[in-house]
Nucleic acid binder design. Structure first.
Lengths: 220, 220
DNA sequence: AAATATTTTTCGGCTTATCTAAAAATTATA
DNA sequence: TATAATTTTTAGATAAGCCGAAAAATATTT
């Protein structure tokens, strides 16, 4: 049995590992808004429970068991987010904090019934894939924004050209890791694309930008 | 801000006060499956936070503030139970443990939207009244089962004739405090009544029994 | 490679909630 | 009304999780 806190650490480690980086104590502390010393304490505990691989000073990774636990929590989080948006009419950017609480409710039967009630959704309102009851999560390949069709959307997962000025531009336009991008229109004459960022700002991006920004396509 | 634990104590005190008894340390310990010394510790804490009235050795009662908190938790508990039964098709006797978890989710907006989603129910699946957003809870007067009409149901809240043999009979038939009773049919010739107990057993009870057993009528 | 900077861990201490055992207060009984 | 039984509180411990400061390890500069 894992405490809420343990669950949050496992989930954080999973999330950080998705971003490709190697997972350091500081990265976790930063992600969880806590102190490095607290993280070290917990890493020892999780290691003792065999949910993570941990060697002092060497960073961490999830074990099979830890990964399964993390996926269960993420499954619940994303199903509840879907519920909040689809059934209770919350906006997609209002649901995270509530789902952070709901993800810790323990009842596999509840989770499975909720999934069915929602019509077995494959993606949550942010476009993130929902793991199934066996922990399988659809890993769609990352494609360039340039390859999205009109009205398709995705979540930014990577950048190819990573010059400082390019990253600066992306930062300014909120085209950062995790942002949701929807293609509103595509223009033939210069291959530029009109996109909606995070359901908030609209902007036109050049072919250079759209070819170098990779997203996880959200398929419904 | 109250911890889960504090919320559980406040709810327990509210529940026990509903049963008329005066609320002792041991009663709370027994209700919460914990030790008297733990209860004393918490009573001091709650008293310091002015959610209960507490004098050493003299038992406790809720303050205005404590009562408001308790009612908010009970409101959430009963709304979630309704959700689980009405929307996710759980049986009414399967939902308690899950609702014990869900009742601690903090988001007034969520609670209010859930209420609306469920069509503003006034009673939960057990027949208990659901407090409204201002903490008002419908206190219907207790009536004898004999005075229920066909198809009405209620929850047992008290007994008039309390001879040992009568109580023994009630115990045997699960006609105990908190049981849900639904009147399936009423017979003129001897004023006996066919009832369904806890959605499980059916039995015919005499007029003597139905006149001495009081329920909280569940009005939908 | 030595010096310096950064990251990570250790150490001691704090808070919350729990428990057992013993002491104090209350209630019941003889 | 003393004595006994019960209830409640106190005192001292424990475990989880968190923190700041100091020490240790690793990474970066010079």
């Amino acid at each position: 049995m894992n405490s809420f806190t343990e669950e949050n650490y496992l989930k954080s480690i999973y999330m950080l590992s998705q971003q490709g980086k190697n997972i350091t104590t500081n990265a976790i502390a930063n992600y969880l808004n806590t102190k490095a010393s607290s993280v070290t304490d917990m890493l020892k505990k999780l290691s003792a429970k065999k949910t993570i691989h941990y060697k002092k000073y060497q960073g961490v990774s999830l074990t099979k068991s830890g990964s399964e636990t993390a996926l269960k929590i993420i499954r619940k989080h994303r199903l509840w987010e879907t519920f909040l948006v689809e059934k209770l009419n919350f906006k997609w950017d209002e649901v995270h904090d509530i789902a952070e609480q709901l993800e810790h409710i323990i009842s596999p039967e509840l989770t499975n019934r909720l999934e069915k009630f929602l019509d077995n959704p494959k993606f949550d309102p942010h476009g993130d894939p929902i793991p199934d009851k066996n922990g399988n999560i659809s890993q769609q390949k990352n494609i360039a924004i340039a390859d999205l069709n009109k009205n398709e959307s995705g979540k930014i997962v990577g950048v190819k050209d990573s010059s400082a000025s390019f990253l600066q531009y992306l930062e300014n336009e909120h085209l950062v890791l995790g942002s949701k991008v929807k293609v509103l229109d595509k223009f033939d004459f210069d291959n530029s694309v009109l996109v909606n960022v995070n359901n908030k700002s609209k902007l036109t991006i050049s072919n250079h930008v759209s070819s170098n920004l990779f997203v996880n396509k959200a398929v419904r």
